[in-house]
Every structure is written in C-alpha cells, then in structure tokens.
Design a protein around this nucleic acid. Structure first.
Lengths: 205, 205
DNA sequence: CCACACAGACCGACTAGTCGGTTCAAATTG
DNA sequence: CAATTTGAACCGACTAGTCGGTCTGTGTGG
C-alpha cells in the first residue's frame, strides 16, 4: 500500500465527512485537519471548496460511464446488456458509495457552477440505457408498448436510490440485491420470447 | 383565493427558493424579502431556519402517510392496495413536488436535529408498503420468492426518484407515468394468478 | 392599554479564500 | 561532485465578508 498523496487524502477525508455531515456541515478548516494537511495545501490542489465537490462527482461518473460502455459493448443481446449495465452500476457501489451519496445530496449546490460538464455525462449515461431498451424492442425481447423514457427512469431510480439504504456491512450483498432487481425489472419489461431467453440464461429467480 | 398568512408566504417562498438554490444557497435575508416580510416576522413564526426546513418536510410526509393509509385501507386485494399506494404517492407530486425536492436534497442537514421525528414517519411508510407486499404473498398474487425488503426499496426508489426528473409542464402527466410504473412493477412481482386478476382489473397496458 | 404581529438595525460567530513565507528535492552549473 | 539555483508543495495567520439569530421598538386590533 503506497503512501497517499495530499490530494488523495483530502478526497478521502471529504468523502467521509461530507457523507456524515454534508458539504455545508464541514468547514475547510475541519477538512484539512482530517486530511492531515493545511489550508495552503488544500488551495494548492483545489481551486475552491466547490472544485473539490466537482472532482468527487467526476471521479465517480466517469468511472460508471466508461465501465458501462465497455460492459454493454460486450453483448449483442439486449437482455445481456441490461444485466451488464445493472451489475456494473451496482458493483461501483462497493467502491464509490460515498461519492454517490455526496454527489446526489449536494448536486443542487454543484449545478450552478458546473452545470454543463455534469449534464453532459449524465445524459450520456441515460442515452446508453435508452439505447439498450430500444435494442431490446428491436430484438422483440422487450415489449413494444414500453415507454423508453419512463422505463429508463424506473431503472435509474431503482439503482440510484440504493445509495439511500444500502449498507456495506449489512446482511444483503450487492450481488443479492442486483439479482433481485434484475429479476423484477426483466419480468416487468420482457416479452414472452424475452422471458424464454432470460430463463435459459438464468437471469430469473 | 384568500390572502396568505405570513407563515404561509414564508413556506411558499422557501419552497421556490430552496428548490432552485438549495437550503444553504438562500439566506434568511433573501427568504423574508421574497416572502414580503422581515426577519422579525420570520423568527416570530419559526424557531430557526432549520425549523422551517423541518416543517416543510413534515407537511409533506404527514400528508403522504395519511393518504396512503386511507387509500390502502379501502381494499382487500394486495394488487388494488399497491396500485392505490402508487397512485397516492404520485398524486402528491402535483401538490408537493417542491416539498419533496427540498426534503430529499437537504435531509442530511435536517437529520442531526430532528432524526427521531423523521425516521419514525418514514419507517411507518415503509412498513405500510411492506405489509402490502406480504398481503400479496399471502393472497398468492405476488411471488413467494420475492424479498420484501428489496422489492419495497425498488418501488420506493422508483417513485421517489421521480422528483429528479418530472416536470409539471412536461408532456407526460403523472397519470401516464403511474400507469407505466404500475404495469412494469406489477408484471415484475406477480404470480400467474395475480396476472389474471390485474389483467381483469385493467392495471396492465 | 395590553397582547400580539411584525419591522429592521445590530451583533457575534464563523468561514472561504489569500498571501507572504518556508522547506526540500531535483535540476543546473562550474 | 559539491555548490547553487529553482520551483513546486506546503504552511498557517490573517482578512473580509456573510449570515443566523437577537433585541428593541412600533403599530394595531380588541
């Protein structure tokens, strides 16, 4: 385990403190104390307190976006793609839950200054999911009468909300949760043909 | 339309401003200006700025809790109950979307001071939903292998997340959205017997 | 005249960000 | 290889401003 840089220590401290007390509940003073650095050190690496919040967001959203793209490109079947997307997102919880929590709690304060950069990546992610749903309709495995937009929102809502209640040391693992989610969502969106494919591939309980 | 009281004007102003700029993005100064009152007026009605945030939350959660209880008590069938719960929650969006937005965005800052009061009502709501799912399993209309906890979280996540993207003046009405949500979720959780009941009752697309 | 609703000047605590200064390791030079 | 230079990393006292909350005063309806 290599020694952490100051910048990394600051991010670590921020994740712990922001998650607990919120962005506005933690002063830069308190932050640098936990990170075992100083005000000077902090402002050497970050333009502002706001800038730190943005970086935390970007670390996480970039990772999710890349991983999801990579994962879904490995498959042709929309059912496989949807499963991959879900698993990818749920996997990053184990690494990035603190980032996600901080991001969703504080995004109101972040938006005015970094709106463009944020919206871009979030839209890209939504499009990725919507494309999978469209693929599924083309492949006749997802029902034609589905609204792409609303279905996408249902899925995003389901996975995103997990940050509000998932506990890493709880009795449910991310594996379990994803399996359940996939089961309910797939059954909810699939056609008969899709059902047969998913059953064969053991996606259902 | 009767004249609004100072207290009501403050709450109205808070909902508009907090939704846009967040709780910490709005000073009491700015708030009372928008509400066309003064600091004295504000502190005559509220113990603190924090207290206002709590009231906003309580107005909304109390309403949802009562309405949901009332709605689900009207039915014996778990399918009807789940539909009623969904419709109730989605309906309050048209009245309380601003409350909900403020509440979820700022709940981190609210918790330390009002933890007990908040947790109580939120837990009550979750229990209500879980009980409906259990009823459904007893009635053999929801699948036995469902995890009550995870399914409840999927549903709560789906409906709660709506505050992030639903626009009152958008092309989708809350009616449309709820119908889609119900369709996907019901298909996801039901047994064959449940499917026949729901189809008869026109809950599916 | 008194209780209540409200006004707004004021206070004190707190905090984001600055800035002159220090350290130290690596690059440059003679 | 020592002597010297350089500059990035880091420090922390300080500032300028903000903002939640208080307090005294004032008008008003009963």
């Amino acid at each position: 385990m290599r020694k952490l840089t100051v910048k990394e220590r600051v991010v670590e401290a921020a994740l712990d403190l922001f998650q607990e007390k919120g962005y506005h509940g933690v002063s830069v003073e308190e932050l640098v104390e936990h990170a075992e650095t100083s005000k000077g050190g902090f402002y050497h690496h970050f333009k502002s307190k706001d800038d730190l919040l943005y970086e935390i967001h970007d670390i996480f959203i970039s990772y999710v976006l890349n991983e999801t793209k990579r994962a879904s490109e490995q498959y042709d079947s929309a059912i496989d793609q949807l499963d991959a997307l879900m698993r990818t997102f749920m996997n990053v919880f184990n690494i990035y839950q603190r980032h996600i929590t901080v991001f969703y709690n504080e995004s109101v304060y972040l938006l005015p200054n970094h709106e463009e950069a944020i919206t871009k990546k979030r839209t890209a992610y939504r499009k990725l999911l919507e494309q999978i749903l469209i693929n599924g309709q083309r492949q006749q495995v997802f029902r034609q009468e589905l609204s792409i937009t609303i279905t996408a929102m249902l899925i995003i809502g389901t996975v995103n909300w997990t940050y509000k209640w998932y506990k890493q040391d709880g009795e449910l693992t991310m594996q379990d949760i994803t399996t359940y989610f996939n089961d309910v969502i797939l059954r909810g969106v699939m056609t008969e043909a899709g059902y047969r494919e998913a059953a064969t591939k053991q996606y259902l309980l």
